[in-house]
Amino acid sequence: MGRDKFQVREFKELLLSLNRVAAKNLITSKFTGDNAFELINEIIAPALESIGDMWSLGQIALSQEYMASKICEEIVEMILPAESPYRKNMPAIGITTLGDEHMLGKRIVTSYLKANGFNVYDYGDMGPDKIGMKVKDDGIEVLMASTLMLNLAFEVKKLRLIFDREGIKTKIIVGGAPFLFDRDLWKEVGADAMAVDAMESVNKIYDVLRYPNEQ
């Protein structure tokens, strides 16, 4: 199946109009049992990427990005359940707010990554001290840190120190408001990369792991 721009556009429109039922039907009508990644790569991910671009340009609001990611997460859970053997080759991704009770950014990124077939370990608001052990135990290749508060963005510095001290090779990608309002902050705190939104996070994961962006 090649990428069908019309279908991507149709799916995107259904997501933005919150037509959950029609969006699900569009994907499940094409699902044959073993083509989940094909559907993700050809329809779901491009639609979400386009929605991400619209968010970056200020053309849509955060709530629309959130709802689109959430609907896609539900659809992908149907065609690619967590226990599916097709997920086994995907890198393990961890995610935390590093102590921030504001969970929205984390929730959007989690939904988006799951909608792209990743295995996501949600560490809630776990702080730097505990997370070193968790990423080791879970074999996390990339840790996403999503913060809203400026002071908690600086928790990434502590995380980097712990990773360096313990010889943990897990890459750190940061995101959230402080990083958007200061585009050099991710370097200041010692992250490996910064994603401006959930949609960019997939490319950044492949960048830091030096994988080609293909499943």
């Binding site: 919150l18 709530s63 959130y66 709802m67 009770e101 504001h102 969970m103 929205l104 929730r107």
Partner: peptide
Amino acid sequence: PTMQMGFDHYFDLIY
């Protein structure tokens, strides 16, 4: 409500 219930749950409520 972003503080009363969390942003994500609040979006769910609105929609």
